[in-house]
Design a protein around this nucleic acid. Structure first.
Lengths: 228, 228
DNA sequence: AATCACATATTTATATGATAAATGAAATGA
DNA sequence: TCATTTCATTTATCATATAAATATGTGATT
């Protein structure tokens, strides 16, 4: 739980909005009413409204009130927003779209990592690889290790936009893993696969790195398609 | 100019932060000092701080004050943040990274558009194509037409994450176009190229659509690489 | 000397009341 | 009919007071 009132309210309202409790295009309750309903001061309410505006979910203007923005304006790349959606309205369709993004990004990131990774970053990936091999059988532990490996590759790409996605991918996968109750496409149980990826990056073999990541993601797509 | 004080302050502080006026990891002036410096009330200041927090630029805690977050936490996919960076610290390096993202996203979007576009969306793309052919010689007008064409493809992908990127790509390209003073890689002057893209999407020829977009982007990469 | 508990000071967090500004809608007048 | 003005509603802004969180320092205890 977030500690302060503003953040609590931000999360509550954020989830409610993406859930559809306040339909798109309609007015939300006015400031005063929100204060009453959630029993917080105007300060807290206004600050929460501002945070949600900053994330693109709502806009507020005098007289017109607080209105829910069309979905195209929502900052889906904001981890909060994405998690709210995945939690409130989990859908395989969204997971499919998310996987398409991973499909676009991750092979390219692996390619760039092979081209640009610093010696330290290579060591970090190797360390992540070690964590995978040492991971207990417990799902949590394995998931952590695999996400760490993936994140290290994104970081090693040296591209700030990809690096920024670490939180995004991390957050989304943690939620979606609960939903599908599957690790396939995220954590290939065969660690030799990750060794191959690591070697390709270490050797600067961009095309191989790209192809390998592409391959593991294909599993994820097949998995989701089969359930749609 | 944004109309209200909170937003003005948000933009001022946001630009100042990405510019490096408040170095990463350091404390920003306290709430009270910011009020004095910018001559606004605490409400406005606090609301601006909340908006910047929501965008990942800063965090604030009692006693510790307001601190600038590491760059990895900044929401680069937030159009505001991206534009602030491009305006305050324009760099070819960032443009290169941005282009790498386009490289990852746009061919995939074209592929998905070929697979999923609705009849109406195909019409929209055709309409965008018409605008390109009709565009005056003026750079502004051409740029608008080309960005519109691109946006229509992203929308037609049917993937919410790609659709969300329209604003992101739009904003970034408008700024970068001023910086490089080049349209290459954004608007291929030869309209027959766009006709090919359109036809591929209309005919559901996913691979061709993907390859064509890949091709036009290659120009952009070559252009930027040559100037780095 | 080291460590733990506690007091203290600083900063943000929250609450509240008052006034200003923006804006959509209704009333007015030519 | 249309432009203008008035009015009511809602957010925006300001000001002030109090609470809560927390880093730092202090002193007692071992």
């Amino acid at each position: 739980m977030s500690k302060n009132l503003t953040q609590q309210l931000t999360h509550k309202l954020g989830e409610a909005i993406v859930k559809g409790d306040y339909p798109i295009g309609t007015r939300m309750p006015s400031e005063a009413v929100l204060c009453e309903q959630f029993e917080v001061s105007r300060s807290a309410t206004r600050e929460a409204v501002k945070m949600l505006s900053a994330k693109g979910l709502i806009s507020s203007r005098p007289k017109q009130g607080i209105t829910v923005n069309p979905e195209t304006l929502w900052n889906l790349y904001d981890s909060d927003v994405l998690v709210w959606i995945l939690k409130s309205k989990p859908s395989l369709q969204l997971l499919k779209e998310f996987t398409e993004v991973r499909f676009a990004i991750e092979p390219m990131a692996a390619k760039l990592a092979a081209e640009n990774a610093t010696p330290q970053q290579i060591k970090d990936i190797e360390q992540a690889l070690y964590r995978i091999s040492e991971a207990e059988e417990g799902l949590e532990d394995q998931l952590d290790a695999h996400l760490n490996f993936l994140n290290m590759i994104l970081v090693a790409s040296g591209n700030r936009f990809f690096i920024q996605l670490t939180q995004f991918v991390d957050a989304a996968l943690r939620v979606s893993i609960r939903y599908t109750n599957q690790v396939k496409g995220i954590s290939n149980t065969d660690v030799t696969f990750h060794v191959k990826v690591f070697n390709a990056i270490k050797d600067g073999d961009a095309n191989t790195a790209q192809a390998l990541i592409y391959e593991v993601l294909s599993d994820a797509v097949v998995l989701i398609e089969s359930r749609l």
